[in-house]
Design a protein around this nucleic acid. Structure first.
Length: 419
RNA sequence: GCGAUCAUAGCUCAGUUGGUUAGAGCGCCGGUUUGUGGUACCGGAGGUCGCGGGUUCGAACCCCGUUGAUCGCCCCA
């Protein structure tokens, strides 16, 4: 029998201490901001039938074709650990009759799973916050959603990221543009990188954000989406941008920004750290911190009625990296129990103080002489010594300059030793 | 899926061209001291050097494999 301790699964994390505090700070801030915009909280299953993702994301996307955690359950049904939120929320919208609440604004957060090579800011089990507006065709929905994202980042103290914005047009615009791109790049196909040659067949829009120097010369001359936008699509995008200006959200046009998943239409966006900024350095190559767009085509792919919708998701780990380490709240009362006969009194006092919303740590193990030092190292606002004065229980309270809770603590301790 | 770097005590690391019982700081445990306290000093526990093979008289060090982490590509949040 082996005594070896099993290792954690590759790409999973055990988050602790300052990092866990930063993680919680991101979630708490998101919860607060989401209420300001009246997004309703939803809790979603962590797994769904595989087809929920396969049909909505597109069979040929990387996520579906090689990154999903799929398995057959005991009934022989193929299930998949959610690789993203949107598909599951769309499924819930259709199966629960949430159409009655449209336009429905919902927010959630939790773990997602993707079988990828782990690296900085990228994990196999990772966590996102997510916001969606379903059943709203107006550009105002895009604006509100983006304004919320912008405010969230500001409240997290992340100032050096910028909204990169693009439009993919409506279905017809997108198809015409796509065809023109294929035609343009096919003419120079043998001069492109191997990766772009492959992308050209699978997802020609992706060629546009290639970083390969062999592709660069051809990117500038590639057809632009703007030339293919229908009148309605142009008007829609203009309404989004003017709305953002009105809301005070700074943005830049990113003509080559596309989305990886098939269901996107119209607005596509990412918040990306500014070049050379502290955030860019903190994130390494995983630069997108929040991304999303409009997915008017998704509901139909799941067998529902055409339903306009727009949403975004942001990686909690990535946001937590930008927020930096956050300290745990300072301990209020540290009690050094300097004689074993006083443990009961300390337990009673701690219970009493905690019920009055004061955090308490009891130090009652190891050498009695060192307990005070140990309690002092916890850096409490009030450092309490419980000891024997001859035969009689007694106490002292250090750091009395913090007077707000001093009287309370003293009264509790007087009762504790009198018992 | 591809490429690169790394893996020594609980943590951060040192270990000189392969050569005796593998070290330090911090942390932990005990004691002394400071006669009232986060100090200083002494002592202690803790490692089959990620794991498995190989080369060698001899491997933490060289070679191969493997697992994991990190960085980049890809993809994405």
């Amino acid at each position: 029998m082996s005594k070896k301790t099993p290792q954690a699964i590759r790409g999973t994390q055990d988050i602790f201490g300052a990092e866990a505090e930063a993680f919680a700070f991101v979630v708490e801030t998101f919860e607060r901001v989401r209420r300001l915009y009246r997004f309703r909280r939803v809790e979603m299953p962590v797994f769904e039938k595989t087809e929920v993702f396969a049909r909505s994301l597109g069979e040929t996307t990387d996520v579906v074709s090689k990154e999903m955690y799929s398995f057959d359950d005991r009934g022989g049904e193929s299930l998949t650990l959610r690789p993203e939120f949107t598909a599951g929320i769309a499924r819930a919208f259709l199966t629960n009759g949430w159409q009655q609440y449209a336009p429905l604004k919902v927010a959630t957060h939790g773990p997602l799973f993707r079988y990828e090579r782990p690296q900085k800011g990228r994990y196999r089990q990772f966590h996102q916050i997510d916001a969606e507006v379903i059943g709203a065709a107006e550009p105002q929905a895009d604006v509100e959603l983006l304004a919320m994202a912008d405010q969230l980042l500001k409240e997290l103290g992340i100032e050096d990221v910028t909204l990169h914005l693009n439009t993919l047009g409506d279905g017809a615009s997108r198809e015409a543009w796509r065809a023109a791109l294929i035609e343009y790049f096919r003419a120079v196909k043998d001069q492109l990188s191997e990766e772009s040659q492959e992308r050209l067949e699978k997802n020609p829009l992706r060629v546009l954000d290639s970083k390969d120097p062999r592709d660069k010369p051809f990117l500038a001359g590639a057809p632009k989406i703007d030339a293919f936008l229908s009148e309605e699509a142009s008007a829609f995008f203009a309404a989004v941008t003017s709305g953002l200006d009105a809301a005070g959200v700074k943005w830049v046009r990113a003509e080559s920004l596309v989305r990886g998943l098939d269901y996107y239409r119209h607005t596509a966006f990412e918040f990306i750290p500014d070049g050379g900024s502290a955030s860019a350095a903190a994130l390494g190559s995983q630069s997108t911190v929040l991304g999303g767009g409009r997915y008017d085509g998704l509901m139909e792919s799941l067998g529902g009625a055409p339903t306009p919708a727009v949403g975004w998701a942001a990686g909690i780990e990535r946001l937590a990296m930008l927020v930096g380490a956050r300290e745990e709240e300072r301990l209020k009362v540290g009690i050094a129990v300097e004689h074993d006969d006083l443990v009961t009194a300390a337990t009673w006092a701690a219970s009493e103080l905690r019920s009055q919303r004061l955090s308490v740590e009891i130090v009652a193990n190891g050498s009695m002489k060192k307990r005070f030092d140990k309690a002092a190292k916890l850096n409490p606002l009030y450092l309490v010594s419980l000891h024997l004065d001859g035969e009689a229980p007694s106490f002292t309270i250090k750091n009395p300059e913090h007077s707000d809770a001093y009287a309370t603590i003293k009264a509790v301790l007087v009762n504790a030793i009198a018992r």
